[in-house]
Design a protein around this nucleic acid. Structure first.
Lengths: 343, 343
DNA sequence: CTGAAAGCGCTTACAG
DNA sequence: CTGAAAGCGCTTACAG
C-alpha cells in the first residue's frame, strides 16, 4: 500500500454485497446479463464504499488497457524542434480520446540509440497499449515503420505511414497553398514567390506542390529563383525573404509556408524599408497564435487544429474496435484563409 | 492477442532458459542475487527472443506503476485557457521523469461534474499511479485538495497546496517583479505603473507584491491609480495600457506581469502615437517565444521553463522513494532579466 | 441469472 | 543461489 487511501477490491465488494466476484464483475462489464435487483444492489454498495476497479488487473485479464501511446520525440536528433501547435493538438486528442474512454500515455523514449528499431513496439507491448498516435517531427524514424508494420493500430499526424492498421491525418496542404496563391493573385500580385518548408517534410513538399499548381492554373510562369527553401522557423523566413528582396525583379507577393517564417519574412521586408502589403503582400500558413498578434496581423491559411485530435481519435478507436486488419483512409482536413493585414 | 506480435512471457523465457520463473524475475529485479553464469545466460536468451516484462502484471504484483499522472484541466470552466509555456514544461517533465524510469499519463477528466470531489484520487487508484503533477489553471479545484490530503505524492506547478506528501514549484515572482521595477527605475523611469495578472492567481498576486516591495525600496510612492488588473491575455494588456495612458500624469515605465499582456500594452502605446521605450518603457514577464518575435523585442523577466519540469520530477521521485510522510520544501526558481527593445 | 474455478503475467516470502 | 507456491485483482468460459 503506497498511500493511505483504503482500496476496496472486487472481493471486498462481493463480500459486502453478498454476491460472487463474478457477479460484481458482470455488473460493471455486462450489466444486462444480471438481474436488475442484484445489479442495483451491487451498484449501491459499490458507490457507498467507493469501489474502483484496478485497471492493471483488468488489463492483465483482458489485454486491453484503454491507453493510447503518444509518440512525440522531443529531443532525439533535433533538440530545438517545436511543434507549431502542439498544445491545440494535445487538447483535441485528449478530449476526443477521453470521450471514448481512453487515456493518453506520453511515451518517454528520449535516451535511445539510433539503432534501436523497436523502441516503440516494445513500449506498446510492455504497457499493453491499445494504439498509438505519432506526432511527426520531420525526421525519418525507422522505429516508426517497425511499429506500423506490426499491426498495432496507429495514426500518424502529418506523415504518411503504411501498415495493416495504420492511417494518418493531415491538412489539405496543396489546397491551402493554392488558395494562398490565388488570394495573392486576386489582390493584384503578378510576381509571386514562395518560401517553402523543408521539402523533405511532407507539409513542406505539398505546400510547394500547391504553389506550383496554382501558378499553372493562373497561367503564371514558374520561376525557380522565386522559390527559396526555408526551415519553418523565423530565421529561415527572414533569410529567405532577404534573398527574394535581392532579386533584380523582386516579388510583389510571397506565399510563406509557415506563420513563424512569415513573421521573419515580415521583419525582413520592414527592415528593407518596404511596406506590407503595398510593396510586398504576404500570406502564411498554420494560423498560429502569433499570426494574429504581430502587427498588422498575418494573413494566413488556417489549419483545423482541434480537427487533428478529433480525427486521430476517431480513426484510432475505429481500428481498435475492428476485428479486421484494415485502416480507415487518411483524413485530409480542409484549410481556410484568414484575412488579416498582410494580404 | 490484439496484435500479431509474438509476446513472450516470463514463463516462456524460463522454459527456454531452463530456469524457474522466479529466477528470471530476479535477473531483472534483483540481478545481484543470482549467479553471474545464470544471469548472463538468461539475459542472452531474453535478448534473443525479445522478452519484455508485462507492466500491467508487474504493477498488479508490486503496486508500483512507474506512471505519473498529469492533471492539466483543459476545458473545465475555462475553455479558452492556455498555458504560456506548456510545451516547455511538458518537455522538461517528460525528459526528467523518463531519466528516472517514469512515464506520464495525461489524465482525461474533462466531463466531470463540479461536485465530483475525488476524480483525481479515483484515477490515481484505478491506474496505480505513483504520483501526480498538477498544472495550475488558475481556478480553485477542490478535487485537488482532496488528492493532496490523501497522501498521494503530488507536486503542483505555480500553486501552493498542502498535504502530507505534497509540494510545489514556482518562479520567484516577487524577486522577478522587483528586478523589473528596478530596471525601469535604473533607466530613468520615475512614474512606474503595473498591469497585473488576476490577483486571485498566485503569480498575479506575487508579482504585484514584488512591484510594491521594490517601489518601497526605491522610495517611490505607491499610487493605486498606477495599478490596473489584467488577465494575462493580450486583450487585458491592451485595455490596461489604455487606461494608464488616459491618466492625467501618465507613467513613463510599466511593469506588465505577463508577456502576452505586454504585447497588448505595446500595441496600445504605439497606437497612441507614443514611442517605446522613449515615452513609455515596458517590461514583461515569462519570456515566451513571442516576446523575442514582436519588434522591437520585449524586455522581460524570464522564467526557467525547463526548470519546472526538472524540479517537479525530482521532488516527485524523492517523495515516491521515501517511506516517510514528508515533502521536500517548495522549489522557487530564480528568474533572469532579458534585455530587449522595450526597456 | 449466478457461482466456482482457472487464468492473465508478474513478484516475493519461504524453504532448501 | 534457486525453485515451488501463493498472491496481486480482475475476467470469462463452464456448469448449473
Amino acid at each position: 500500500m503506497r498511500y493511505r487511501v483504503a482500496v476496496t477490491t472486487i472481493r471486498d465488494l462481493a463480500r459486502l454485497a453478498d454476491v460472487s466476484v463474478a457477479t460484481v464483475s458482470r455488473v460493471f462489464n455486462n450489466p444486462e446479463v444480471v438481474s436488475q435487483e442484484t445489479r442495483e444492489h451491487v451498484l449501491r454498495v459499490a458507490a457507498r464504499v467507493g469501489y474502483q476497479p484496478n485497471e492493471s488487473a483488468r488489463t492483465l485479464a483482458t489485454k486491453k488497457s484503454y491507453m493510447i501511446g503518444l509518440i512525440w520525440d522531443t529531443d532525439h536528433r533535433r533538440p530545438g524542434w517545436r511543434h507549431p501547435f502542439l498544445q491545440e493538438i494535445l487538447i483535441g486528442l485528449k478530449t476526443a480520446l477521453s470521450e471514448r474512454g481512453y487515456h493518453l500515455l506520453l511515451l518517454a523514449t528520449s535516451e535511445r540509440e539510433d539503432s534501436d528499431k523497436d523502441v516503440y513496439l516494445r513500449a506498446v507491448k510492455r504497457h499493453n497499449l491499445d494504439g498509438v498516435v505519432f506526432i511527426d517531427n520531420g525526421t525519418r524514424d525507422p522505429a516508426l515503420d517497425v511499429l506500423a508494420a506490426s499491426g498495432v493500430p496507429c495514426v500518424s499526424l502529418d506523415r504518411p505511414v503504411s501498415g495493416p492498421r495504420t492511417t494518418y491525418v493531415t491538412s489539405d496542404n496543396v489546397g491551402g497553398a493554392r488558395s494562398a496563391v490565388a488570394r495573392l493573385h486576386a489582390r493584384g500580385c503578378r510576381t509571386i514567390a514562395t518560401i517553402t518548408g523543408p521539402v523533405r517534410t511532407r507539409p513542406g513538399a505539398e505546400r510547394l506542390d500547391g504553389y506550383r499548381a496554382e501558378l499553372a492554373a493562373l497561367d503564371l510562369p514558374y520561376r525557380p529563383e522565386l522559390v527559396v527553401e526555408g526551415d519553418f522557423y523565423l530565421a529561415g523566413g527572414y533569410a529567405g525573404m532577404r534573398r527574394l528582396l535581392d532579386l533584380p525583379h523582386r516579388p510583389d507577393g510571397v506565399f510563406v509556408a509557415g506563420d513563424e517564417m512569415a513573421v521573419g519574412a515580415l521583419r525582413a521586408i520592414t527592415e528593407a524599408g518596404l511596406a506590407v502589403p503595398e510593396d510586398v503582400a504576404l500570406i502564411g500558413f498554420d494560423d498560429i497564435e502569433l499570426a494574429a498578434l504581430v502587427p498588422p496581423g498575418i494573413t494566413t491559411i488556417a489549419q483545423d487544429k482541434a480537427g487533428f485530435g478529433t480525427a486521430a481519435a476517431t480513426a484510432l478507436v475505429e481500428m481498435i474496435d475492428s476485428a479486421e486488419d484494415e485502416a480507415p483512409p487518411p483524413t485530409v482536413l480542409p484549410t481556410t484563409v484568414v484575412l488579416r493585414g498582410t494580404a
